[in-house]
């Protein structure tokens, strides 16, 4: 299907900014930890796990 050049450019820019992910739950938080983390954990799981197993848009089998 044909999409307008304007839309294709907007998608390209949106991707380039890199502000999208299937997993919305990480996006609003700068201090996200897994249940298994220690209280003192300093790993930024919001970044580390962005877009991986924790974002099950499909493939949960």
């Amino acid at each position: 299907m044909k999409l307008s050049k304007t839309l294709l450019q907007a998608i390209a820019v949106g991707i380039a900014i890199g502000a999208v992910s299937s997993c919305s739950l990480f996006e609003d938080s700068s201090d996200v930890h897994l249940k298994s983390c220690d209280e003192a954990c300093e790993v930024d799981h919001a970044q580390k796990h962005k877009n991986i197993d924790y974002c099950p848009a499909c493939g949960m089998g």
């Binding site: 307008s4 998608i11 299937s22 997993c23 739950l25």
Partner: peptide
């Protein structure tokens, strides 16, 4: 998959336009 962003309805405008176009 419309429910993946279930708790976070801030969809970029260009993605909305993509959905509308199709």
């Amino acid at each position: 998959s419309f429910d993946v962003l279930y708790n976070h309805p801030k969809i970029p405008r260009w993605f909305v336009e993509l959905l509308v176009a199709f």
